Simulated scan of single mutants.
Amino acid sequence: MTEFQVFGDWMKGVQSTMEDALASFLPSAAQTPTRLHEAMRYAVLDGGKRVRPLLVFAAGDLFGAGTDLLARAAAAVEMIHAYSLVHDDMPCMDDDELRRGKATVHVKYDEATALLVGDALQTQAFLVLSEGGHIEDAARAVAMMRLLAQASGSVGMCGGQAIDLASVGLNLSLGELEQMHRLKTGALLRASVLLGAMAGKSLRDEEVAALDAYSSAIGLAFQVIDDVLDATADSATLGKTAGKDAADHKPTYVSILGLEQSRALAEQLRTDAHKALMPFGENARRLRDIADLIVQRKA
C-alpha cells in the first residue's frame, strides 16, 4: 500500500469519525425548536472535506492526544466553520444559493432561520468544547476555548470577512490580500492545528512557533487554491457557484498574480509548510499530507 493510500484511509477514518461525532453533538431534529435544529444539522452534516477536523486530528496524533477530546475540538471548529458559511452565503453578504452541492440554508429554509442557525452553531461549538470532563488541566481548557474565540472573532475570521466585504471593487496589494486571508481563512486553520496539539500536551514556545509557521503557509495556500479553482473549475465540481469572485469584483490571488503565478505561489507555500514541520520529523507526516492535499485538491 502506498503512502498516499495510507493517508487516504486515515482521512476517510477521520471524516467518518467526525460525521458520527457531529451528529451526536448537535441537537436532535426532534427536539424543540425542531425547524432550527433540523436546519443546524442540514448545515453541518453530510458535506465538506472536513479539512479543519483533519488538522485537529493530525496535530493531535503528533502530540498524543486522546480521541474524545480531539473529536470535541474538531467538532467545535467545524461548527464555527459551518456557521461562517451559513452567514457568508446570505443575501447581505455573498448572496449564494449553492454550498457543498446543495441549496444554501437561507434558500432551503429562510433568511431568519439561516441567521439563527449561525448564531446557534457558534454557541454550540463552545458548549461541545467545554463539556465532558475531558481536560484535567482547567487552565489548558480555558486556553483552548480562548484560542477558538479569538480565531473566530473580530481579530480573526469575522474580521477577515469584514475586510473582504469592504474590499469589493478595490485594487488591493498582495500584502493587503494576504492580511485579509490570514484572518478570514488562516486564523481558523491555525486554531485547528493548535487545538489538536493542545489536546495532547502543553506546548513549548518553539513548538508553537513551528506550528504557527506551518499554519501560516497552509492558510494562505488554501485561499490561493480556492481562488484558482473559482477561476478554473465548474460549479458541479466545486459544489458552490464557480466564477463568483470575478463576477462580484472581489480581489483574489488570480486577479493580482494571474493563474500561473498563483499556482507557483501555492507550491512555494507547500514547501514552506513542509520546512516548518522539520523539527517534528516523520511524526508530522499527517500534517505534511494535509499540506499536499490542500495544494493538490481539485474542489
Rank of each mutant, 00 (worst) to 15 (best):
D68K: 05
A43R: 10
E267I: 00
A143P: 02
A236I: 06
R285A: 12
A299K: 15
E131D: 14
G118R: 12
A74L: 08
T123D: 06
A103M: 08
H37S: 08
G133H: 11
V107A: 13
Q179M: 08
K201W: 00
A75V: 12
S28D: 14
V193D: 04
M40G: 06
V254P: 07
G239R: 13
Q296L: 10
K184S: 06
S216H: 13
L116F: 12
G60P: 09
L287H: 06
S235A: 15
K49E: 14
G64V: 03
R146W: 07
G281F: 09
L211I: 11
D226N: 09
Y109P: 03
A246F: 09
D95E: 08
T34A: 14
V168D: 03
K49A: 14
I290P: 01
L194Q: 08
L172T: 05
V208D: 02
K102T: 02
A76P: 07
Q161P: 08
F25T: 00
P279W: 11
V77W: 14
L269A: 04
E282P: 07
V56L: 05
L220N: 01
D119G: 02
D96M: 01
H37G: 07
R286H: 15
Q15E: 15
D292R: 03
F126E: 05
E3G: 03
A30G: 09
E136D: 14
T17A: 14
D20W: 01
P27I: 07
Y109R: 00
P27Y: 12
V142F: 14
A264S: 13
L69N: 00
M198N: 02
V51S: 00
L195R: 10
P27R: 07
L115H: 07
L177G: 01
I218Y: 07
Q15V: 14
V77L: 09
E19Y: 09
Y253C: 04
E207A: 10
E206T: 11
I225E: 00
A125G: 04
D164Q: 09
D96G: 10
S152N: 12
G47I: 02
H81L: 05
E260I: 01
V208C: 08
H81C: 04
V56A: 07
V107K: 15
A71N: 12
D289Y: 07
Q15S: 09
L211K: 02
S84F: 02
S235P: 03
P53T: 10
Q150A: 15
R190E: 12
K244V: 12
K201E: 15
L287T: 02
A75E: 01
D234L: 01
V155H: 12
S192G: 06
R100L: 03
L259T: 00
L148Q: 07
T2R: 12
L188F: 11
F63R: 00
A191V: 04
T34H: 13
L194E: 10
V77N: 13
L269D: 02
R297T: 09
E78N: 03
A199N: 13
V14L: 11
A71Q: 15
V6G: 06
A191H: 01
T113F: 04
I163H: 03
R140S: 14
D205H: 04
R146I: 03
M180V: 03
L55N: 08
S130M: 10
S28K: 05
G47A: 06
Y42Q: 11
E207Q: 15
L195M: 11
A138Q: 06
N171L: 05
Y42I: 10
